[in-house]
Amino acid sequence: MRIPALATLAIAMISASAPARAQTYSPDYPVCLHVYGPVTYYECRYTSIPQCNQSASGRAAQCVVNPYAAYQDRAVRKRGVY
Rank of each mutant, 00 (worst) to 15 (best):
R2L: 12
P4G: 02
P4H: 02
A5K: 10
L6F: 08
L6N: 09
A7I: 12
T8Q: 03
A12V: 14
M13W: 08
M13T: 14
S17T: 15
Q23H: 10
Q23D: 11
S26G: 07
S26F: 07
D28C: 07
D28V: 05
P30N: 05
P30F: 04
P30C: 06
V31W: 00
V31D: 00
C32E: 01
L33D: 01
L33I: 09
H34F: 13
H34W: 11
H34M: 09
Y36P: 05
G37M: 07
P38V: 11
C44M: 06
R45L: 03
Y46P: 01
Y46Q: 00
Y46T: 05
T47H: 13
T47Y: 13
T47Q: 14
I49K: 01
Q51T: 15
C52R: 00
N53F: 01
N53Y: 01
G58D: 05
A61W: 00
A61N: 03
Q62M: 09
Q62I: 04
C63N: 01
C63A: 02
Y68C: 00
Y68W: 02
A69K: 03
Q72T: 07
D73Q: 12
R74I: 07
A75T: 07
V76I: 13
K78H: 02
R79A: 09
G80H: 01
G80K: 08
Y82Q: 10
